[in-house]
Simulated assay, not measured.
Amino acid sequence: MTITTDSVFGLNAPALALWQRRSEVIASNLANADTPGYQARDVDFRAALQQVGGESSQLAMSTPTAGQIDATSTSTDDLKYRVPMQPSMDGNTVDAQVEQSAFASNTVHYQASLSFINATIQTLRLAITGGAS
């Protein structure tokens, strides 16, 4: 019987990679808050996770192995442009307060996914050792 990360961690492992990617995108948005003409981007987390879970009617993502997301991908194809609430005169669509809020929220989600993975590892360790330290 082969045990894969998909069967052990479920969607938490790909979700962790997506949360990390989203942190990088939001950090990029914040870094370019004063760049004229810069368009704020964001990861469509729901659509990406649906594709991993097989719930999408769209084409499958190109992945290194079935059921995984390539965390090393630097493609911007999965990024969407964020709609500005108040466009600026220089064409920059980054709202620093929105980005900071999104970054904080994303950090909480990342930590939650990491906690679920750590709890699964602890449970597996307990099952393997039989409760002995």
Rank of each mutant, 00 (worst) to 15 (best):
L114N: 01
T93C: 12
R22Y: 11
Y38G: 00
A17T: 08
G91P: 15
L114Y: 01
R82I: 10
M1L: 01
A102V: 02
S7T: 15
V83C: 11
M1P: 04
E55I: 11
P64F: 00
F9E: 08
A48P: 06
S105T: 12
L59K: 09
A33S: 13
L114S: 06
G54E: 06
N12V: 04
A102M: 04
P14H: 13
L124Y: 08
L18N: 11
V94T: 04
Y38E: 01
D34Y: 06
A13Q: 09
Q86V: 02
Q58H: 09
H109T: 09
I128W: 01
V25Q: 02
I69G: 06
A127W: 09
A71K: 14
S133R: 15
R41N: 01
F45L: 10
T120Y: 06
I69V: 13
A112C: 03
L16C: 03
T65G: 01
D6I: 15
N12S: 14
I121M: 01
L59W: 07
A48F: 12
G67N: 13
R21Y: 03
L16Q: 04
R21M: 10
V52I: 15
I117P: 02
A31W: 00
T5A: 14
L126Q: 08
I117W: 03
S75L: 05
Y110E: 09
S62Q: 12
S101V: 07
P36D: 06
S73V: 07
S7P: 09
Q97I: 07
R125W: 04
A102W: 01
I121V: 08
T120V: 02
L49V: 04
Q20E: 10
P84S: 02
N32K: 07
Q51L: 10
M1Q: 02
Q39W: 12
K80W: 05
T65M: 00
M61G: 07
